[in-house]
C-alpha cells in the first residue's frame, strides 16, 4: 500500500512520540515475557547459563505439595476477600451517597487506609492482632462473655491465619469505595423517582436502579480484584515472614514463587509458576467476563 506524504509524515511523528514506550515495551515487557517462557523450560539459577530440561519444571510442580498448598491458600483467600471487599465497598458507597452530616470526614476515613504503604499497614495489623496485647483481642474479651474464653491466636493458629489476612485486606477497600461513589453520583435522579412512583421500596430501588447502573464499575473492580488478589504478597510476607506462618497456612502463590526464585535459586521453576499464574489469571478473568455477561449494563455510558 502506498502512503501519501502526509500519512508517512504522521506515521513518523507518531512513532517518534511513542518511541519511549516502544523501547520500554521491548526491554521491560516483551523480552522478559519471552525469556521467562524460555526459562520455564530450563534449569536456571541466574549464576550459570540456563539448561533446557523440557517440561520437567511443570511436571515437578504437579507433584510439589507446597505448590498445591500455596495455590489452594491463594484461591481460598481470593474467593473470600474479593466478594467481601466488593460487598463492603458497595455498602459503604451507598451509605456515603446519602445526604448525611460529615460525609467528607467519613469519605476520608474510608479512603485513607487504601493509599498507605502496605508495609506500614501490615505492621499495624501485626500489632492489632497480637494475641496477648492486641486491641482486637482486647475488644473481644471486653464484648464477649468470659465463658467463651480468650480471643484467637490470630497469626499463630493455622485456622485463623487466612481470616486475619482477609480482615486486614478489607481495610484497604477505600479506593473501590471512591470509584463506586463516583459512579453512584452519575445515576440520574429521575430513575429513583420513577421507581418510587411505581411503588418501589428502598430494596427495589437498589436492586433495579442502583445495581444495574453501577454494574460496569463493579465488573471493572471484579477483574482488577482477580488480578491483584491472586498476586497477594506484601501483607502476608510482612505478617508471617517468607515461610508463610504455621503449617504454611499463609503461604500464598507469589510468596512461594518468590521463595523459589530468590531463596532456592530455582529461577526456572519460579518462571513455570509465573506462567501458570498468568494462565490462571487470564482464565478467571475470561470466566468472570462470561459469567457476568447479561448482568453488566452498559446502556447508561
Amino acid at each position: 500500500m502506498l502512503m501519501t506524504r502526509t500519512t508517512r509524515r504522521e506515521l513518523h511523528l507518531g512513532l517518534v512520540f511513542i518511541s519511549p514506550w516502544i523501547v520500554g515495551f521491548c526491554v521491560f515487557t516483551l523480552y522478559p515475557l519471552l525469556a521467562s517462557l524460555y526459562y520455564s523450560f530450563c534449569d536456571y539459577d541466574v549464576l550459570s547459563r540456563p539448561v533446557w530440561v523440557g517440561l520437567l519444571n511443570y511436571r515437578d510442580l504437579f507433584t510439589d505439595e507446597v505448590f498445591w498448598k500455596s495455590l489452594g491458600n491463594t484461591l481460598v483467600y481470593a474467593s473470600v476477600s474479593l466478594p467481601m471487599g466488593i460487598i463492603v465497598s458497595v455498602m459503604v458507597a451507598v451509605l456515603l451517597n446519602q445526604p448525611v452530616p460529615g460525609r467528607g470526614i467519613f469519605r476520608t476515613l474510608f479512603f485513607v487506609p487504601s493509599i498507605l504503604p502496605l508495609v506500614a499497614v501490615a505492621v499495624v495489623w501485626l500489632w492489632m492482632f497480637n494475641t496477648r496485647f492486641g486491641l482486637v483481642n482486647e475488644v473481644i474479651t471486653a464484648v464477649l462473655p468470659a465463658s467463651w474464653g480468650q480471643g484467637p491466636n490470630w497469626l499463630g493458629d493455622e485456622r485463623w491465619v487466612k481470616p486475619t489476612i482477609v480482615l486486614a485486606s478489607l481495610w484497604q477497600t477505600g479506593g473501590t469505595v471512591v470509584i463506586l461513589l463516583a459512579a453512584l453520583q452519575e445515576v440520574p435522579q429521575q430513575l429513583y423517582e420513577s421507581a418510587t412512583i411505581d411503588g418501589g421500596g428502598a430494596w427495589v430501588r437498589f436492586r433495579h436502579v442502583t445495581l444495574p447502573m453501577i454494574s460496569p464499575v463493579v465488573y471493572f473492580n471484579l477483574v482488577m480484584g482477580i488480578i491483584n488478589s491472586l498476586q497477594v504478597f506484601v501483607m502476608p510476607y510482612v505478617l508471617l515472614g517468607d515461610t508463610g506462618g504455621p503449617n504454611r497456612s499463609g503461604l500464598f502463590y507469589s510468596m512461594y514463587l518468590y521463595q523459589n526464585a530468590f531463596s532456592f535459586s530455582q529461577m526456572g521453576y519460579a518462571c513455570a509458576m509465573a506462567w501458570l499464574l498468568f494462565v490462571l489469571i487470564m482464565g478467571l478473568t475470561w470466566l468472570a467476563t462470561r459469567g457476568t455477561r447479561g448482568l453488566v449494563y452498559y446502556g447508561g455510558a
Binding site: Y31, P32, L33, S36, V46, M267, A270, C271
Partner: peptide, 13 residues
C-alpha cells in the same frame, strides 16, 4: 494484564 511475577526473573537477571 501481565502480572509482575512473570517478568520478575528475566528483569532480575
Amino acid at each position: 494484564m501481565v502480572p509482575f511475577p512473570v517478568v520478575m526473573v528475566p528483569l532480575y537477571s
